[in-house]
């Protein structure tokens, strides 16, 4: 099924502008697992009648990976290119499903001439519910779930509670891991680790984190980051395939609301 998605160029051609720009991000655009998260979030925005636009082929990597890998040149090239495009569409608000792009665009673009109100999708969904634009029926009551804090959303930007509030609204039974919130353990993907072999050690980080998640004996492991999702999905496959599903909060909502 093809989803109705309008690009900013199409909005401009109609002489209109959307209320928010959905920054899809490289993972959300190309990674098979992350694309499902992207599509889920779009379905939620449709359900709430959100007028949103995407950059489509005009979007390019935010530069987060380049920056954390030490390539400040490449980061700033990407940033300045993206800022030029965002500013040419006079974008004011941005929502993204990727905490890395959320952090980079929100905190690091501002010093380079890109000032936007940037939201993580869990924050935006929460806002939609708060403004009564989205009503959730809470079909998954009683399902046991744990939530893994993405570093760049939680520790990096202090967003701990909004994703948890969403899980409670859906009626899920949230069981915290021993390490959570400020003390949450990284999934192992950040700082460009996603794209390289780990250094020699006794264990892979994603395995350690998945062990911690499985120890809570839940049905679902929720997160809000495409990279965490990949790392934990791999972890579950490695440790005990089928023991729990790793899902994004947007996907849980799509499931509970049968969107």
């Amino acid at each position: 099924m093809s989803l109705q998605v309008k690009t900013m160029a199409e909005w401009l051609a109609e002489g209109a502008s959307p209320e928010i720009l959905f920054w899809v991000g490289s993972a959300g655009s190309f990674d098979d697992r992350a694309k499902k998260i992207t599509r889920s979030f779009v379905k939620i925005m449709h359900k709430a009648n959100v007028q949103f636009g995407v950059l489509g082929v005009e979007e390019s990597a935010s530069g987060d990976i380049a920056k954390r890998a030490g390539n400040e040149f490449l980061f700033q090239m990407q940033a300045l290119m993206n800022i030029e495009i965002l500013n040419s569409y006079q974008v004011k608000r941005i929502v993204t499903t990727c905490p890395h792009d959320f952090n980079t665009i929100k905190n690091e673009y501002s010093g380079l001439g890109g000032n936007y109100d940037v939201l993580h999708h869990t924050q935006f969904i929460y806002e939609l519910i708060h403004n009564k634009r989205l009503v959730l029926s809470g079909n998954l009551k009683g399902t046991k779930i744990t939530y893994h804090d993405p570093c760049y959303l939680g520790r990096g930007n202090g967003v701990f509670n909004t994703p948890r509030k969403l899980l409670k609204i859906i009626g899920l039974d949230l069981i915290e891991m021993k390490r959570s919130k400020e003390r949450s353990l990284c999934c192992g993907a950040g700082g460009a680790q996603m794209f390289k072999e780990p250094e020699k050690g006794s264990k892979d980080i994603n395995i350690l984190r998945t062990e911690e998640a499985l120890r809570t004996n839940v049905d679902l492991i929720a997160t809000g980051c495409p990279f965490c999702n990949t790392m934990l999905t791999d972890g579950v496959k490695n440790l005990n395939e089928g023991a729990a599903d790793v899902v994004d909060i947007a996907e849980i909502i799509v499931k509970s609301e049968k969107l």
Binding site: V24, S26, G28, S29, F30, V54, V57, S60, A61, A66
Partner: peptide
Amino acid sequence: IENNGAPWQFSASDRLNWKDD
């Protein structure tokens, strides 16, 4: 990233393909 605008080797022109998947 320099050539395709993404960390993977996908063509930049395929960036919106997810909506039809």
